[in-house]
Amino acid sequence: MFAAAALITATFTTPERIGTDPQSVLWLLPLAAAIAVVYKATKVSKIKAIAFARESVVLFGSIIIFMATTALVLFALAWLIVE
């Protein structure tokens, strides 16, 4: 019991080591999923498992596609300015 409590405390008092490599951008995914789920939970009139999951997935995909497009446009702009 004490060991479990100590483990939980240690988990939330010591930061993870996250590098500044491109993979760290993947941390965006769980957050985008949470935003999609909570937003859809406030918007749909009636919650039915399959319809709700489908709507959340569509919103999640839209967020990711929009962010990827924005990143590509910014990358192209930066490339045009530098080159």
Binding site: T13, P15, E16, W27, P30, A34, V38, A41, I47, F52
Partner: peptide
């Protein structure tokens, strides 16, 4: 109740992920 459960679980889990990654600091 369904809406409340979805909101509670999603917000608490996401908040805990944030604390896990960065600590309570």
């Amino acid at each position: 109740k369904k809406r409340a459960a979805i909101i509670f679980i999603t917000i608490v889990v996401t908040f805990c992920i944030g604390l896990y990654v960065g600590s309570i600091g």
